[in-house]
Design a protein around this nucleic acid. Structure first.
Length: 407
RNA sequence: CGGAGUGUAGCGCAGUUGGUAGCGCGCGUCGUUCGGGACGGCGAGGUCGACGGUUCAAAUCCGUCCACUCCGACCA
């Protein structure tokens, strides 16, 4: 991509208290429509898509099948579970010209249940797991922290149905393992915690929490084993013995909840009459679970966790472009050639071909935060300067060496 | 919803005791520059958040409302 053509350009200054708000807006990744509603601009959309692809890959591995469900739901389906009233405060409800009532989706359990009751007959049809990436609308009392808490945001939600609690819980922990793989690939320092199910279930659930001062949650975790808990239901003291391994100490920390999984049981199936016939010919309710990850919140979390005073720092796995290429005086032609060469090889390059000063290009390169910066100028002569975003070290390579290193 | 703050040019901001609006950046253009936000010349750009009131006169004073940010309640 030629930076001269990219919409929009980085800005000089942005007033915002939250780090993800300031950096992502300043660098041109997102734009605010109103409190809690954001446009993902080309750079931001690329990042979110990369996050989504990493999620998709792991969810497919646990037999999730991707679908796309509607966002406009009739009142009747939400009445079936009682959530039309129970979740009233977070729902955006609408009425059409004839007085019919709807809600903008804040989750999809009821919708999946409706599909299942039409499609599932026998135990032979189970288990089944479906997921989609789509927008969620939640009427938060207060939108805040940039894109971390919006009233409209993207979520990957996976739903699974099973013949028994054993099978559900077996799958539930498989998904938890898949989530760990996802957040390992994404490169976060996170903890898995036990938490409250909120409007979703009375049962306890698990969350993936990325450690960050910008987080709204307080969690407790063991400094030696994998134990962790959300402070909303459990209270522990920093420094006490870990309740699980009895060896490590409890650490209290701020964190951002990026994923949550719920073993919902048979309540939804019973209320919505989602039954299957077992081997003995008996009708039984399906065991149900739901599993969410917030990709747009994940992007905001990156901005909060990976940055320095110069700007964003993207890990290669999700960077909008792998390389930021700068051609300075005397290197324009060579930069153009290298851009073509790398692009032909399928390497993602953002080429700053603007007629701007060297200083502006360097500042924007740092702000946008691609992992690798390449510079060609009079100074580099026939070579190319390679610098990683996370290091001050610069090395001069031939373009062949650059290509080999990038492959 | 309670508390605090802010709305003035595309962005960031200043604007005194009321007298009809400025700065920096950016933008257009010409020229000189060209490895860490270069410099000069010329130029464009505003219903001062909205509505109402006070006044000869309101960005400025008063009232109502709206929007955004932060803290809280709440929430993924």
């Amino acid at each position: 991509m030629r930076y001269s053509k990219l919409f929009p350009k980085a800005r000089r200054e942005v007033k915002a208290e939250s780090i993800n708000h300031r950096l992502l807006v300043q660098a041109g990744f997102m734009d605010q429509l109103m409190a809690g509603s954001w446009t993902l601009l080309p750079l931001g959309w690329r990042v979110v898509n990369k996050i989504n692809n990493i999620i998709r890959e792991e969810i497919n591995k646990v037999d999730g099948q991707e679908i796309l469900m509607p966002l406009l739901h009739p009142k009747s389906i939400w009445n079936e579970t009682g959530r039309w009233d129970k979740a009233d405060e977070i729902m955006y409800k609408l009425k059409d010209q004839r007085g019919r009532e709807y809600v903008l989706s804040f989750t999809h359990e009821e919708i999946v249940m409706d599909i299942l009751r039409k499609q599932i007959n026998s135990y032979k049809d189970l288990p089944v797991a479906v997921y989609h990436f789509s927008t969620k609308f939640r009427n938060e009392l207060r939108a805040r922290s940039g894109i971390l808490r919006g009233r409209e945001f993207m979520m990957k939600d996976l739903y699974s149905a099973h013949v028994s609690e054993e099978d559900l819980m077996d799958y539930y922990f498989k998904v938890l393992e898949a989530y760990k793989k996802i957040f390992d690939k994404l490169g976060f320092n996170y903890r898995v915690t036990e938490a409250d199910g909120g409007v979703f279930t009375d049962k306890n659930t698990h969350e993936v929490q990325v450690l960050s001062q910008a987080g709204e949650d307080t969690i407790y975790y063991c400094d030696q084993c994998d134990w962790g808990a959300n402070g909303e239901i459990y209270k522990f003291k920093q420094g006490n013995k870990c309740p699980k391994c009895r060896q490590g100490k409890v650490i209290e920390a701020k964190s951002i909840e990026v994923a949550n999984i719920f073993p919902l049981g048979t309540m939804y199936a019973e209320k919505m009459k989602v039954f299957y016939t077992d081997k003995n010919g008996k009708k039984k309710p399906v065991w149900f679970g739901s599993y969410g990850i917030g990709p747009t919140r994940v992007m905001g979390t990156y901005a909060e966790v990976f940055n320095d005073d110069k700007g964003l720092i993207w890990p290669e796995a999700v960077a909008p472009y792998k390389v930021y290429l700068i051609g300075l005086k005397g290197g324009e032609k060579k930069a153009k050639d290298l851009y073509k060469k790398l692009s032909d090889l399928g390497i993602e390059v953002l080429w700053d071909d603007r007629d701007e000063s060297a200083g502006i290009k360097f500042k924007d390169a740092d702000l946008i935060g691609c992992p690798i910066r390449l510079v060609i100028s009079k100074k580099t002569a026939e070579k190319v300067e390679w610098k990683n975003r996370t290091s001050e070290k610069q090395e001069l390579l031939t373009s062949e060496q650059v290509v080999a290193k990038l492959k």
